[in-house]
Simulated assay, not measured.
Amino acid sequence: MTAPEKGPASYFPSIEKKYGRPIAEWKDLIHSSPLSKHMELVTWLKTEHGLGHGHANALVAHTLAERSGT
């Protein structure tokens, strides 16, 4: 049995269920955005794609952490 996800990734199942897109697609959108700052990306996901704050924040935090290697 695998341990449950912790941190931002713990939101991923509910993000996929609520918004109907796989996490990889959301990450691709974040990577292709001309924005680079955390809160700019969060605001963009909220206004342009209708995500809630917590879901947008989790996606951005996880994606930027991967980008920086942490």
Rank of each mutant, 00 (worst) to 15 (best):
H55Q: 07
A58C: 01
G50W: 07
L51K: 06
K37R: 14
L35T: 03
M39R: 14
S32K: 15
A24F: 02
W44C: 12
Y11D: 04
P4I: 13
I23G: 01
K17G: 01
E40W: 13
K46Q: 13
V60H: 00
E16L: 07
I15M: 02
E48Y: 09
N57T: 05
A58V: 02
L45Q: 03
G52F: 04
L35D: 01
D28M: 14
H31Y: 14
E66G: 10
H53M: 13
K46C: 13
R67G: 05
A61G: 11
G69C: 04
V42A: 04
R21P: 03
K6F: 11
A65C: 09
Y19G: 00
S33M: 12
D28L: 15
G20C: 07
S10P: 05
H62F: 08
S14K: 15
L45F: 01
T63N: 11
V42L: 10
P4Y: 07
L45A: 08
H53G: 02
E66R: 13
L29T: 15
H49F: 09
S32H: 08
I15E: 01
T47H: 02
S32L: 15
H62Y: 09
V60I: 04
K17F: 02
P22Q: 12
G7D: 07
H55I: 04
A61E: 10
S10I: 08
S33G: 09
G52T: 06
L64F: 00
S32R: 15
E25M: 12
V42K: 06
A3I: 15
S36V: 13
P34Q: 10
F12A: 06
P13L: 08
P13S: 09
P34H: 10
T43N: 05
L35Q: 01
G69K: 02
N57D: 00
R21K: 14
H53W: 03
H38Q: 12
A24I: 07
L64G: 00
P13W: 08
R21T: 10
N57E: 01
S68W: 05
